[in-house]
């Protein structure tokens, strides 16, 4: 039983990071139909910048996080301006190719600047694990989970109630109509990329605190693909549920099935579930169905 709960907690923590990264993914897809293959690199850059500030310049952790997020807003805006704006009116596939190029570029730069060794954050969270009855959980895990959930709630409220959030959803629905109402679609897309970069960076910092950072962390960008497809590419709640589901699946499959099959199930399990879900619900769990009035 303990083993099971341990796995569940691990799964939830990893899942919350997936959910954050997936959120960025979904936002970009919703607002511009683009699948952003550079999402994992945003995570990488965010993590390294926070690390550098903490290690090299001795900035206090929370201040470093805040500065990193500020930087990521700029990064998102810059990417929108330099990479995406020139593609307005071009086919979506060209834009997707551009994001692949962007991901390679960013990963290359990260390796040039920070090298490929795994680095760890200095102990920011206390090392003493927290006991919850029989269960022993490291405090990093709990902090990560709490922070991720907080962010997800904040973003959900933002999209539901703030006028900017409503307008972002409106532009995602019908760009032309949004344009006719004086909504600046360019600005909306820029905000989207900034948010995507920010949530990815938070994910990166959390993961960095748990496992340490090295450039392979960027592959989480691809791991998140089953998450968003499972949840429905254009659904924000879907990204969140999908993130936790995949996180749990990975942890449980890794804990119970890997010893039996000699490893590897952990990586495959999410995709197996993905295929089954898509057979039953082609839009994903929460994907928006195309509304057709009869």
């Amino acid at each position: 039983m303990d083993f099971f709960l341990q796995l569940v907690i691990t799964g939830l923590v990893v899942g919350s990071v997936y959910a954050l990264v997936a959120l960025g993914f979904v936002l970009i897809y919703k607002s511009s139909d683009v699948i952003n293959f550079a999402q994992g690199e945003f995570l990488l850059v965010g993590a390294y910048i926070a690390l550098t500030m903490v290690m090299l310049y001795n900035v206090p952790f929370l201040a470093a996080v805040a500065l990193t997020l500020g930087f990521c807003v700029l990064l998102g805006l810059l990417v929108e301006r330099l990479v995406l704006r020139p593609f307005i009116g071009e086919p979506v596939i060209s834009v997707i190719m551009a994001t692949i190029g962007l991901s390679l570029l960013m990963r290359g730069l990260v390796q040039m600047i920070w090298g490929t060794d795994t680095r760890t954050f200095p102990g920011i969270f206390s090392d003493t694990p927290i006991r919850m009855g029989e269960l022993v959980v490291s405090s990093v895990y709990l902090w990560s989970l709490a922070l991720a959930i907080l962010l997800l709630v904040v973003f959900n409220l933002f999209f539901k109630y703030s006028s900017t959030g409503i307008v972002m959803r409106a532009a995602a629905d019908d760009q032309m109509a949004a344009l006719s109402m004086g909504i600046s679609v360019k600005r909306i897309v820029a905000i989207t990329w900034a948010i995507a970069a920010v949530v990815a960076a938070v994910g990166g910092i959390l993961l960095g605190n748990i496992n340490g950072i090295n450039p392979t962390l960027a592959y989480i960008g691809l791991l998140v693909l089953p998450v968003v497809i499972l949840g429905g590419l254009d659904s924000i709640p879907g990204a969140i549920v999908g993130g936790f589901t995949i996180g749990l699946l990975e942890a449980l499959a890794g804990g119970y099935l890997d010893p039996i099959f000699g490893g590897g199930v952990k990586e495959v399990a999410p995709f197996v579930v993905l295929v089954i879900v898509l057979m039953i619900r082609p839009y994903g769990l929460f994907g928006k169905e195309i509304i057709e009035r009869v």
Binding site: I166, A170, A177, S180
Partner: peptide, 26 residues
């Protein structure tokens, strides 16, 4: 100047009230 486009073009996945709020964006 505000154009009501042909074919209505409401924001399908937003509620009625959210559509109105979006209209007041400017």
């Amino acid at each position: 100047i505000f154009q009501v486009m042909e074919g209505r073009r409401v924001f399908e996945h937003l509620t009625v009230e959210e559509n109105l709020i979006a209209g007041a964006y400017t």
